[in-house]
Design a protein around this nucleic acid. Sequence first.
DNA 1: ATCCTGATTTTTTTT
DNA 2: AAATCAGGAT
Length: 768
Amino acid sequence: MENPHAEHLQELLEGLNEPQREAVTHGEGPLLILAGAGSGKTRVLTHRIAFLVFTDQAQAGEILAITFTNKAAQEMRGRVEHLLGHGTRGMWLMTFHAACARMLRADAERLGYTRQFTIYDQADARRLTKRCIEDLGVDPKRYTPPAILGQISAAKNRLRDAAAYRQQVGSYFEQTVADVYERYERDLHRMNAMDFDDLLFRTVTMLELFEEVRERYAQSFRHVLVDEYQDTNHAQYRFLQLLVGGGRKAPAKGERTSLPGHRNLAVVGDDSQSIYGFRGADVRNILDFQEDFPDARVVKLEQNYRSTQTILSAANAVIANNRGGIAKRLWSALGEGEPIKVRELEDEYSEARFVVGEIERLVDEGASRAEIAVFYRTNAMSRLLEDTLVRREIAYQVIGGTKFYERAEIKDAIAYLSLLANPNDVVSFMRVVNSPRRGIGQTSVGKVVGHAGTMGLSIWEAAERPAEVPGLGTAAQKALARFMDTMHELRGRIEDQDQPSPVGDLLEAVLAQTGYVEALEAERTIEAQGRVENLEQLVQVGNEFDAGNEPSREALDAFLQQIALMADADSRRDEESLVTLMTLHNAKGLEYPIVFVAGCEEGVFPHARALDEGALEEERRLFYVGVTRAMRSLYLTYARRRTIFGAQTAGLASRFLDEVPAELTEFEEQAAPRWGGAGAVSGGRARRRREEDLDIDDGAGHDDAWDGVDVPASAPIRAFRRGQDVTHPAFGEGVVTAVEPGGIIVVRFAEDGSERKLMSEYAQMSGH
DNA sequence: ATCCTGATTTTTTTT
DNA sequence: AAATCAGGAT
């Protein structure tokens, strides 16, 4: 072989099984890799990329590889670099959204945006939708912003603009959506902003409208690879089609049947793991791939390298209840392994205690916390698990939920930057103009925004001349002028040609000069202090960004984009010894030796709302995803009673549990509760008695998870109540301002006005 | 303009 | 149970 990389090639193909090797070495033309759970698809993708480079079929810059999350992209980049033995400069290895944002930045002007356009996340989009609904005089009670935005989003995912949507309205509701959609689009465009769906939609529009742009990308990306193809939506499908050519046999009206192109598209996916239908993902994309590309090479990866045969058999049995789909028979060479542990618990508290107790036991036996994950259907279910973990002092991390970048203070800080970057950004303006309080209330803000709208000014221009805003009170005028003075100063920092401010410095200046941090510190509460710390963290993120980027105007835009497209899954840490908690959706693509799936009850999982929408099969796939994350040990738990929306609900075991063959499981139910507590587990070791009779704390409630907490004999357990006066040996007199779960009380001390969180059973506190 | 309180609503999942 | 929201009091 002449190839100078021959040696590398040899090494690259070693250790791959036959179908994996076939997928890696496939040359030109469409390739469909049906990769069952744990079958080494990431391996195939990374090796294929390296193979293409080593065989000179593509330069690094000629490869576009799409992943689902930034984290996955980073991981893949790392692995590809490792295989290549050098960097991956120029390779587009990122999410759909990031790739689209990058393309749009380059040619935004063609669509009437500047390259500083702002990306609105869902919360921003929702607020804007709400405003549109109100502006149109529609009752936001009758049609809620999320409902309408959901329709708009679905339309965008199917590449329907407002006009196209209007053409097919069939109900009054849809009529209303059409009205809102039109206005929403107009406002977004005026604000030089795009929502998540726009990133794809606008990119597709751009590629369709401007043939030279399409050709530029189509030619430069000689090979396109897509991970998690089963979760692509129509817009993403069309995007790929525009880049590689080929296309659907029966195109929707108005679509070109087929496009010219190299058709070097390799997709990897598993229809059994399609779990994003609710946000427009269309399994048909993967199911119809062979119709779209009749000459596609199809490779099935069916050997699972992750799980025991027991776990796989359970997964196979459950998924067999779904109709259709592509037949696969996953098998493992890892042996039978241990049975799946199914546990019925009394209520969610017992469930949490069981899970945490089991984690403790496993850790005692030598397992690392990092090997353990707990999955649940909804984010709300993490709280109780967290409480219980905290009590037992087990280090953990939660993925998802209240994300760092969704915290109010972080969004405020980012909104300041957005407004500085994009003077049309009304949503950001509204967010920060009175935060911290400056005496510019809703009415005043409404007047300024309205004025900008009618005069066709950017919000920045309108705010610059408060005197010209009709009806604006003098106090508000003054306050606004002061605010804009500050904003001008800050803007000067980024427009300084000689020395543009680095992002971290700019952030610090924003937080200082706007008085934001000052206002927080003035609150003198624990919460406010936590916010300040979050902001410090954000500045740190900025500094880290600066370390890799020359300070410039463009750097700020890039930073904002990076933040906007950041997902919480990206913050997952693997190294530290932490138990990981997350929703089943977040679990896709991951694996853990020990997995708990909590809340396996009818109505919870499958979720009642999903059942309403006829999405049972998607729920089942979600269960399948959960089960197949486990390598050697799997626990499935459910509670007979659970509090939902503050109401007690009777729980029935999930139908998915019935679908797991009994011979693969080991079932234990909790004995019927006796008065005053439950806890005996049949066949298992005796559980600690629940100390319900201790009247601890206030209405925060069912604090029954006190077992295991060592209470010093000298400190009497007492119930602290909000408003109660207390004396602390060190901090002096104070008043209880809050009682939190976990035996934590918040006390504001008279001495210095400070507020502190204290563990009530340790604090030598005397109540009065 | 801001704060407080009571009523209402929410919890599916996320780039 | 918690969070958001509207309306009313200050």
